[in-house]
Design a binder for these strands. Structure first.
Lengths: 172, 172
DNA sequence: TATTGTTATACTCTATAACTATA
DNA sequence: TATAGTTATAGAGTATAACAATA
């Protein structure tokens, strides 16, 4: 399926054929890898997003924000959330607003820097996140059930390495 | 150290401590894998999205739609695009509208079914997609440059398997 | 001056449901 | 009746830039 060069007659656009052919047939391993990565992730993400919506009336970014907080008992500053979630500051404000309205997180003044705020999970937020995380975990376990553990470990290790590489490459 | 399925005694949870601890400490390999997958993809996706925006004033969904068409010389019906892009029909209409306004794709009546439309790349669309795809490929090659080819192949193979598994699991 | 966070704005993507025109 | 696609609606996420308070 991969190398089936379809010898398309060059009747249409004479100038662009070369580049088009190249794009179509000469996908490098890197590109193929990226597309596969994206496809995998989208598939799972769609599934998770749907369930998050129908089961908890929440979204992936919101879940993500809470997950960050769950791992940071002292709370996180807005800017730190922004960095970890890889979105801009205005965004974090918006998502935090919604979560705060629902009573799941709280903004607390930072002792050391009066410009800063620390966002923390409330007790209710912690509880709800626990419920979501448990279900979330079950969904994921179900999705990955067929893959043997050894391969999962292998995959996780490779992804870890890739992440390091990409992080280095993007920081330039 | 991975196969330690901690089938937690799951005592009646009078406090939330048990569940919190479980969530924090007992991440199964599947969950860890999923989070790593998501992190990797987001990292790359953010990068690509930014460049797509600054370099071509376009977005990932638009690029995706064009990529689908580029691989389907006869064009694709709206419904097929919807399935392949994993979004709903109304969405495809919107994205197609924008691309059509820019002259990059065209809607063509389907010969066999008068309800249906086939979306095709225009000559200009094909050309622009070629430019984008070439740059896109270079970005990706740059991001993945540090990983040896062998590992990329391994990773691609594992992802391929995972995708099959997930597709089967989500179709139930 | 620089940094932290908010506000204001605008746009894209997204899903849902009602609608049309064919099948 | 069922399917293909559009329209209308509503909402979330996103980036950008201007702004306030504090460092």
């Amino acid at each position: 399926m991969a190398a089936k060069r379809k010898s398309n007659p060059a009747r249409a656009v004479s100038q662009t054929i070369d580049s088009e052919t190249r794009v179509r047939d000469d996908h490098h391993q890197s590109l193929r890898l990226w597309l596969r990565l994206l496809a995998c992730t989208s598939l799972i993400e769609n599934h998770v997003r749907q369930r998050l919506q129908s089961g908890f009336a929440t979204t992936l970014p919101r879940f993500d924000l809470m997950a960050q907080l769950e791992r940071a008992p002292g709370g996180l500053k807005m800017g730190e959330l922004s960095r970890r979630m890889m979105v801009t500051g205005g965004n974090v404000t918006g998502i935090t607003d919604l979560l705060e309205e629902e009573g799941l997180v709280a903004r607390v003044a930072d002792a050391a820097d009066r410009r800063a705020l620390r966002v923390k999970l409330t007790a209710e937020g912690r509880q709800q996140f626990g419920r979501m995380a448990r279900e979330h975990e079950q969904w994921v376990i179900g999705l990955f059930a067929e893959m043997p553990l050894k391969k999962k470990e292998q995959l996780a290790a490779l992804l870890s390495e890739l992440k390091q590489n990409v992080a280095r490459a993007t920081s330039d």
